[in-house]
Amino acid sequence: MARERGLDGLERILENVTTADQPTDPAAALLRAAADGDADAVAVALRAGADIESRDEHDRTALLLAATYDHVAVAELLVAMGADPDALDDRHDTPWLVTGVTGSVAMLEALLPANPDLTIRNRYGGLSPIPASERGHVDYVRRVVRTGIDLNHVNDLGWTALLEAIILGDGGAAHQEIVRILLAAGADPGIADGDGVTPLQHAEQRGYDEMVALLRR
C-alpha cells in the first residue's frame, strides 16, 4: 500500500522491519506510538498487523490521538494509509472536531486530504468553528472559514460561532479579529440565541465597543 501510494519513506521503514522489531501487541503499540508522536513506531505497528482503526479504552483511534496531541507527521502518515477522519470516540469527538479545540491549522491541513465530514457535531451539538471561536484561535478560524463549513450552525446551547466568540470570549484583540473574520466570511449577525438576544446586543451588554462597531457595519 505504501508503495502504491508513493510513500517512499514509509516503504523503506516497512521493508526494514524485522520479526524481532515487531511488537507483540500491534494495536496497543499503534495507539501508544500515535499518542507519543512516533511516526516510525506507527509504521512498525501497522507492518506488524495493527488495524489502523484500533481503539483505546475511550474509543480513540490512532488518528484521533494524533490530532488530540497535535502530532502532525503521525496524522499525515495515517491519513495517507487511509485512516478514518470521522471516527467518533466516547466523547463524540472525531479527529476533525478536535482541531477546533486545539486550533491547530497544521492538523487541519493534514486531515483535509481525508475528506472529513464537516457536518458531524460534537457532544454540544457544535461544529469545529464554534469551540475555535470561543477559544480565540484566530489562525484556525481564518483557515476553516475557507473550507465551506457552515458558519451559521447553531449548537445545542443555541449559539453560533459568532455568538460564542462574543459570549465566551474576553472581548480582546483575538476575539475581535474572529468576529471580523466570521462576518467577512458570511456569518449572519442576525441569528439570535435561544432567548432572542442577538450578537450585537450581547456585545453591547458586555461593553465590547470594537465588536459593536463591527456588528453595526
Rank of each mutant, 00 (worst) to 15 (best):
V42D: 06
V144Y: 08
T119Y: 00
G6C: 12
G136Y: 10
V105S: 13
L112A: 02
G158N: 05
E53I: 03
W159F: 13
L63H: 06
G103A: 14
T24M: 08
V79R: 00
D21Q: 12
G196L: 01
D25I: 03
L88V: 11
A67T: 08
V212Q: 09
A62L: 02
L77V: 11
A174I: 00
I178K: 03
L162H: 05
P199E: 02
Q22T: 12
D51K: 10
R12T: 15
G148E: 03
L77S: 05
R180C: 04
A35Y: 08
I167D: 12
G125H: 09
I149R: 09
E76T: 14
R47D: 13
A165N: 04
P129L: 10
A28K: 15
L168R: 12
A66D: 06
P26V: 11
L111T: 02
P85Y: 11
A29F: 07
A73D: 15
A35E: 14
M81N: 01
A33D: 05
A87E: 09
V101A: 09
V101C: 05
N152Y: 07
G125N: 08
L10Q: 11
G37N: 06
G171L: 12
A192R: 01
L30Q: 10
T19I: 05
P26K: 10
A67P: 05
V212Y: 08
S133H: 13
G196A: 06
L7K: 06
S133T: 12
A192L: 00
